[in-house]
Design a protein around this nucleic acid. Structure first.
Lengths: 223, 223
DNA sequence: CGTTGTGAACTCATTCACAGCT
DNA sequence: AGCTGTGAATGAGTTCACAACG
């Protein structure tokens, strides 16, 4: 039967968006240095096929020049826009433990356009302390603070058993995206996105890959 | 294109293996309590379709009973074996910073069958200190220690600029799988697997999902 | 009944191969 | 010459729908 949707061009899959992030990282390192990158270079750096790179980039518009390649600077701009990081994002963090402290020290956070503007916790001993220049506020302040700070994203670094209720609070405070480090799947209202960062599952993936000696991931090894 | 060993036994894709981990987590919570789980329950818990669950589980052998469901205990066993976590794994960690300290405190590590047996760092001030009960050894000990401890996996929590050379050292020390927290792609010899845990890219994925209001992830909200 | 397992259909993603521009 | 963009072919992964079975 006839083709309800013969048109393949349209939306970016999640996996595709992840590749864009990787192209962006590589293009950024070249942006100052030189003028152009080829699909073959990008492919080698990221570990995908050159055809894949061209297909991905072509879906963003005509930003290559035939016979020449892609202008590094222009590519960075286009990728930033396509991913949604052509602006800065304001982020709050809930759950100030070791992991949070590690994240706060991580420069890549701010380097990639994410500004941590608020810290929250429920432990009386932690509330009021200052971590990496930011005071830790009680959870009861969350909703008001999100509004005041105009934060849109939240990082969730609380224990598993608290994760769902904290996620509920973050969603109803108006945050639109949550990065969840707790090893549980959290449910959120429609309109809120969640990116899980689940170490337990990643560990199991590593065991799986080793146990069955999968070549793994972004393109294997030369040698 | 460049893949001399495409899929040895040709079985489970990476994405499928990740779903298995999620089924396992859910089945574990039920294993003591009740007898059986249905594909619909699993699907709801993990956020995939029931048909997907059945297809995945059927690929592991006939472990369901028609008209009844899957025995929770048996499912846990089968999933453990399929993923490769029906045994314990010995893990060393290189780069003892805040992130490492957070990981060391994370109980899920040992709960999932991963034993951290060695810590390594190159900073003289850190070497010799004891963190969570383990002494931090110099990098020069790595190769001998990996052999002595019979470690197979490594966690890489060093800064980006050191990541590749540390990865080289870890691979030549005989580790077969690396969990890489550094925000760079590392190259490893054939036979070594890498699971990247890249916060910068995950952050960008979050921005992407929110910016284009993707429902995201494992199927979110029904309504 | 209810629920699994699975051929078949289908959708989505990737690679091929080459036309078209520089 | 070199390199991109893209139809067409291929492949991977997912859902449909129902037979098979307790």
């Amino acid at each position: 039967m006839p083709d309800p949707t013969p048109n393949p061009d349209g939306k970016l899959s999640r996996a595709a968006a992840q590749r864009l992030s990787q192209y962006l990282r590589f293009a950024r390192t070249l942006a100052e240095a030189d003028g152009t990158v080829s699909s073959v270079e990008l492919a080698g750096a990221v570990g995908v096929s050159a055809a894949q790179v061209r297909r991905d980039l072509a879906s963003l518009g005509h930003l290559g020049q035939r016979g020449v390649g892609y202008d590094a600077g222009g590519l960075v701009e286009a990728l930033r826009k396509a991913i949604g990081v052509d602006r800065r994002w304001r982020v709050v963090l809930v759950g100030v433990g070791n992991l949070a402290r590690a994240l706060l020290k991580y420069r890549g956070f701010v380097d990639h356009g994410f500004d941590l503007v608020g810290l929250f916790d429920s432990a009386p001993g932690t509330i009021g302390t200052v971590v990496e220049g930011l005071p830790v506020e009680p959870m009861s302040n969350l909703a008001a603070a999100v509004k005041r700070l105009r934060a849109e994203l939240g990082v969730l670094t609380v224990p598993a058993d608290a994760a769902q209720s904290v996620a509920d609070a973050m969603a109803s405070a108006g945050l639109k995206g949550l990065m969840n480090f707790a090893p549980v799947r959290i449910r959120v209202p429609a309109g809120v996105s969640v990116v899980p960062v689940d170490l337990a599952i990643q560990l199991e993936q590593l065991a799986f890959a080793v146990h069955f000696n999968e070549p793994d991931e972004t393109g294997v090894a030369k040698e």
